[in-house]
């Protein structure tokens, strides 16, 4: 049998180019991400923070928040528990992260387990309010804030990115891959009144 590399699949390969006129919100899937969960080993929290600080020059958040450097980000999703994401890192990312933090932390590859959607546009807060039970108002949820919560009965982690060039809000939502079809159905029913545009996948 030909030993060519297996090709991966985006979470919603069959969506096509769906658009509802109105220009209210946009949605795209960040594809090819390296995703891993990282949990500090017993009593190794301080050493782990130091290791991450030295390597990535950033401070692991001790609360629901996201920190970034270059293509890598860490989001606090629980006590001593982070979701690490690397743009373009694929499944190799977890191996390199594990090599970096062993034996201070346990790393599990989640590159196939999570899907990350980037959503934005002028009506994005009104859309997300139909599913997220948390306050996403700019005064309450600032750039860099994150929350692990639910959206329309689907477990999700959401963080706020920097606003777009036009001043509109931008968020990223990580959820389990098997639920992406259900998420999509909720999203388009909620966004339809404002208009939405599916922008396919992005490698960034």
């Amino acid at each position: 049998m030909a030993d060519t590399a297996l090709s991966g699949l985006s979470a919603l390969p069959h969506i096509g180019m769906q658009t509802q006129p109105g220009g209210g919100v946009t949605i795209t899937e960040r594809y090819g991400l390296g995703i891993a969960t990282m949990q500090a080993r017993q009593g190794q929290d301080v050493s782990l923070r130091e290791r991450i600080r030295q390597h990535f020059l950033l401070e692991l958040p001790g609360r629901p928040a996201i920190v970034r450097t270059g293509s890598v980000s860490f989001t606090g999703i629980g006590p001593h528990h982070w979701l690490a994401v690397s743009a373009g890192g694929g499944h190799l990312f977890s191996s390199s992260l594990r090599a970096l933090v062993t034996p201070l932390a346990s790393v599990s590859d989640q590159s196939g387990g999570y899907v990350v959607f980037r959503v934005g546009g002028r009506a994005i807060r009104d859309t997300l309010a139909k599913g997220f039970p948390i306050d996403l108002d700019p005064r309450a949820f600032k750039p860099g804030d994150a929350a692990t919560t639910i959206v329309s009965h689907i477990g999700a982690t959401i963080w706020r990115c920097d606003d777009g060039a036009d001043g509109s809000a931008c968020f990223e939502i990580a959820l389990f891959r098997s639920l992406s079809q259900s998420f999509w159905e909720w999203f388009v029913s909620s966004a339809a009144e404002f208009g939405y545009q599916w922008q396919g996948t992005t490698q960034q």
Partner: peptide
Amino acid sequence: PEFDVQLVSVTEQWA
């Protein structure tokens, strides 16, 4: 709580 154990669901990670 004294155990050094970390748990995470990887149900979604593996087909």
